[in-house]
Design a protein around this nucleic acid. Structure first.
Length: 514
RNA sequence: GGUCGGUUCGUCUAACGGUUAGGACUCAAGAUUUUCAUUCUUGCAAUAGGGGUUCGAUUCCCCUACCGACUACCA
C-alpha cells in the first residue's frame, strides 16, 4: 500500500520558535514537497503550565516569513479549528483534541499495556532524592513498580475506589521487563535498546485531563496519517517507547518512519544553541523579533535585515549538503536537491560569519531597481527625498560593500548629506601647509569643468595633480576627507559627478574655511 | 551514574576501502587602487587516541577519551 507522504511540524507554544525549530520545519517541508506530499502544522499545547501567549501566532508568522507554508493546519494565519474538506483532520491544536485521547489511554490499560498509578509527585520526588543520596537513580519501572502505589498491585475495587472522586492519578505505560526493541532511523540506521532500562512513562495526566506528549503525539500522528516523523535528536531516547506504543495499539503497519535531526550547537564552547548565545555573541537565534512577558526583546533575522531566502538557505546547510559545491539554493531548488540520506549525523555549531555571507550573496543577486525600493523608506525616514535615478546610482556604487540593506545608509550617507565632521587622524596625516592653496587651484579647475562626469573628471584630476607635481595620494585623500568626512567610500570622481559641481565645490570650500 | 547518539582544517562540510584528504566561511599575504571595500592570486589549517580486519583504512569492527541528548504528572 502506497500512502501519500504526510509529515508534520509539531511545536509547543512555549515561546518563540528557535532557529533549530525552523530548520526542523524546513526539512519537513522540503521532504514533503519533494515527495509531492503534505506538510502539516500541529500545535502541541498539552502542557498547560508552560503555555506562552502569542507563541502560536509567532510560530505561524515565522513560518510564513520563511515561505514554509503548511498545506494543512493553518488557514488565514490561524490554526484551523473546524474540520473541512481540505482540513479533514482538524482541529490541529492538541488542547482542542483532548476528548480524543482519553479512550486511547483507557484502551491501553484495558489491554494490559498500561496501568493507573497513584503515587504523588511529592512521594516520587522523595524517592528520587533518596536514591540520589545513595548514588543511585530512581526509576519507575519493573524494578520498582511492585513496591509503589498502582493498579498493578491493587484489587479492582481498590483501584476503582482510588480512581473515583479524585484526579490524583496518572496512566503509565508498562514498559516490558526485558525486550530488545529494534528501531530504524532514516538518518542514523539501526538502533537497539533493551526496554528494561527504560521507565514507565506517564501517558495521561489526570490533574489537567491531558495526555503527555508521548500519547498525544502517537495518537495524532496515527489519526493524521503521518508517514514520516522528522524531529529533533532530543526525541531519540523516547523512540523505543513510541515504537512500543504503536505496537500496543496495533498500528505497526501504518507506523511512520522516523528521522532524528542533530542539534544546533553554540558557535563557541559547548552545548546546544540557546537564546543567551545570540545576545552574548551578537546574532539572532530567532527568525523574528520577540518580546517576552518581562518586556525583554530578542532580535530576529527578519529585523536584522536578512532576506528570508538567505535565512532558509543558510539553515538548510546547517546539517545538510547537496554533495556538490553549489551553496546558493532557492527554496524550490532545495526541494529538488534535499534528501534525508545527506543529512549529517553530528551536531552543527552555528557560524554567524557564514550566515552573513549567505545574506551578502543574496543581496548581490538583487537588482538595483529592487534595492532602490528597499532603500527609499530608509532615506525618507531621514528626510531625504531623492529621485530613483540618483538612488540607483548610489546603490551601484555601494552594493558590493554591503551585507544588508541596513548597511546602505552608513555606506552612502555622504552622497546625500555633506559631512558634519572630519576624521582628525586623516587630517593630521595629509593636511600640509600648502593644502589650502592646492585646494583653491582645484576649485578653480573644477569651476569651468564640463562635462562634470566621472569619465571626464577622473583623468582630468589625475593629470592636473601630476602636472603640478603634487602627490596623488595626499591630494586625493584630502579631497576625500572634505567630500566624505572620513577614509571610506567610492572613487573621488564617482562622488564628485554624483553630488554635482556645486555641492563638490561647496564641500571643498567649507573644508577650507574650517 | 545509566541509556542512546555523535567525533575530518578554528567553523560548516566533501571524499559511502585506493585522492597530493576537496570546497565554503574566517584569517594572513600579494596584485589592483586616491580611501574603505570589491575583484583576482596565493597561503595557513583536519581524519580524537589505541588496537584489530584488509594488499590497502577518514571510510568496517572493538576499546578508550571527549562532546551531546535523554533520564519530569515538559515538550
Amino acid at each position: 500500500m502506497i500512502r501519500k507522504t504526510r509529515v508534520r511540524f509539531a511545536p509547543s507554544p512555549t515561546g518563540p520558535l528557535h532557529i533549530g525549530g525552523v530548520r526542523t520545519a524546513l526539512y519537513n517541508y522540503l521532504y514533503a514537497k519533494q515527495n509531492g506530499g503534505d506538510f502539516l502544522l500541529r500545535i502541541e499545547d498539552t502542557d498547560s503550565q508552560r503555555f506562552v501567549p502569542g507563541a502560536e501566532e509567532y510560530i505561524i508568522e515565522a513560518l510564513a516569513w520563511c515561505g514554509i507554508s503548511p498545506d494543512e493546519g493553518v488557514e488565514d494565519g490561524k490554526i484551523v479549528e473546524v474540520a473541512s474538506e481540505k482540513h479533514s483532520h482538524a482541529p490541529y491544536r492538541q488542547s482542542q483534541r483532548k476528548h480524543l485521547y482519553r479512550k486511547y489511554a483507557e484502551e491501553l490499560v484495558n489491554k494490559g499495556y498500561a496501568y493507573y498509578s497513584f503515587d504523588s509527585s511529592e512521594d516520587l520526588e522523595a524517592l528520587r532524592k533518596e536514591a540520589e543520596a545513595k548514588g543511585d537513580t530512581f526509576i519507575y519501572n519493573h524494578t520498582t513498580r511492585d513496591t509503589l502505589s498502582n493498579s498493578l498491585r491493587f484489587s479492582q475495587d481498590e483501584t476503582l475506589r482510588r480512581l473515583n472522586g479524585t484526579n490524583e492519578w496518572v496512566v503509565r505505560f508498562k514498559m516490558p521487563e526485558n525486550r530488545i526493541v529494534k528501531m530504524k532511523d532514516l538518518i542514523r540506521g539501526d538502533i537497539e535498546v533493551n526496554s528494561g532500562t527504560l521507565d514507565d512513562k506517564v501517558l495521561w495526566k489526570a490533574i489537567d485531563e491531558l495526555p503527555t506528549y508521548h500519547l498525544a503525539n502517537i495518537v495524532d500522528d496515527h489519526l493524521m496519517e503521518i508517514t514520516e516523523v522528522i524531529r529533533g535528536e532530543e526525541w531519540l531516547p523516547s523512540l523505543p517507547l513510541h515504537y512500543l506504543l504503536y505496537e500496543a495499539f496495533g498500528w505497526q503497519d501504518s507506523q511512520p518512519k522516523f528521522a532524528h535531526l542533530s542539534l544546533l550547537l553554540k558557535p563557541d564552547g559547548k552545548g546546544k544553541l540557546s537564546k543567551r548565545d545570540g545576545d552574548r555573541l551578537g546574532f539572532p537565534v530567532f527568525p523574528l523579533q520577540w518580546t517576552n512577558e518581562q518586556g525583554e526583546t530578542s532580535r530576529g533575522y527578519r529585523e536584522d535585515g536578512y532576506y528570508p531566502e538567505a535565512f532558509i538557505n543558510l539553515l538548510a546547510f546547517l546539517g545538510w549538503n547537496p554533495g556538490t559545491e553549489k551553496e546558493i539554493f532557492s527554496l524550490k531548488e532545495l526541494v529538488e536537491a534535499f534528501s534525508l540520506e545527506r543529512v549529517v549525523k553530528s551536531g552543527a555549531k552555528f557560524n554567524p560569519d557564514k550566515a552573513r555571507w549567505f545574506n551578502q550573496e543574496y543581496l548581490r543577486k538583487e537588482s538595483t531597481l529592487s534595492l532602490v525600493d528597499s532603500f527609499k523608506p530608509v532615506l525618507l525616514s531621514k528626510g531625504i527625498d531623492k529621485n530613483d535615478a540618483y538612488i540607483a546610482k548610489v546603490i551601484d556604487l555601494i552594493k558590493e560593500r554591503a551585507v544588508f540593506v541596513n548597511d546602505f545608509w552608513s555606506l552612502s550617507d555622504y552622497l546625500f548629506v555633506a559631512p558634519s565632521s572630519y576624521d582628525q587622524a586623516v587630517r593630521t596625516k595629509f593636511w600640509k601647509e600648502d593644502t589650502p592653496a592646492v585646494l583653491k587651484e582645484i576649485i578653480g579647475m573644477l569651476e569651468g569643468f564640463e562635462p562634470f562626469t566621472k569619465e571626464a573628471l577622473e583623468p582630468a584630476l589625475s593629470s592636473f595633480i601630476k602636472e603640478k607635481g603634487y602627490q596623488m595620494g595626499s591630494v586625493m585623500n584630502i579631497l576625500r576627507l572634505l567630500l566624505v568626512g572620513e577614509s571610506k567610500g567610492a572613487g573621488i570622481a564617482d562622488i564628485m559627478s554624483l553630488i554635482g559641481k556645486q555641492e563638490t565645490i561647496s564641500r571643498i570650500e567649507r573644508g577650507l574655511s574650517d
